[in-house]
Amino acid sequence: MKPTHKIHIENLNVYAGKQQILKDINIEIPKNKITVILGPSGCGKTTLLKCMNRLTDLYPELKVTGKVLINDKNVLDAGEDIVKLRQYMGLLSQRPYPLPMNIYNNIAFGLKLKGVKRRRELHKQVVHYLQQANLWDEVKNRLREPASRLSIGQQQRLCLARGLAVNPEIILADEPTSALDPISSQYIEEKFVELKNDYTIVLVTHILRQARRIADYVVFMYLGEVIEQGTVEEVFGNPKMEKTKQYLGGTFN
């Protein structure tokens, strides 16, 4: 694995019963860049993302083979260490799912799992991460309210703050703006561009314009296969494969 690459996926196959969801995936995800996994709905983008932090465990019907190397460790045969490994990766899902607790504890939850115990330290970090997600000013007077009372946009920022709080190296985002209004979406996109200095970001999306706006590196998937991958200039500027051209041109069936 080259040092500039953060995640290295080799011969990844995922089966659900007889159906193959992912076919022989080989990709390299560069460090401190935004890698966009692009493709139409149902092409296996989300499954690919879930393989990276092994949330595939939640679906016992899935059979996963191959290698997903993160920091030279194969996530797929990490055994119990996966609990620790998952903290290398923050997850942002399609819709925000705040934990059923108050705003403060939504952030403190991950911190406590990491072993932060002292109250003052906990508070300092909660404030810090809420500020990082530009949420602090809106919630500082209502930290003890249930997180479910926030607006969807605020909830998504809370989820971002919660993910950042475990101090990950990678951010996995699964269409994080699909439920948000344009302004909240724009905020998340800007934040990602800002965050890539410190984090490696993997963003799943089917929105072409979003990919064009913020991607450094693009992986185009179709029906469980990687059709094409390269820098954003390569894939958008000069696509090699017919399928990619069709998808980018909007003439896709």
């Binding site: 879930k50 923050g90 899902s93 939850f109 799992l113 993910g163």
Partner: peptide, 15 residues
Amino acid sequence: IPVELKEASLSLGAT
């Protein structure tokens, strides 16, 4: 309970 809630908790490093 949505499975995503479970995913969120697990991805934060909870067992």
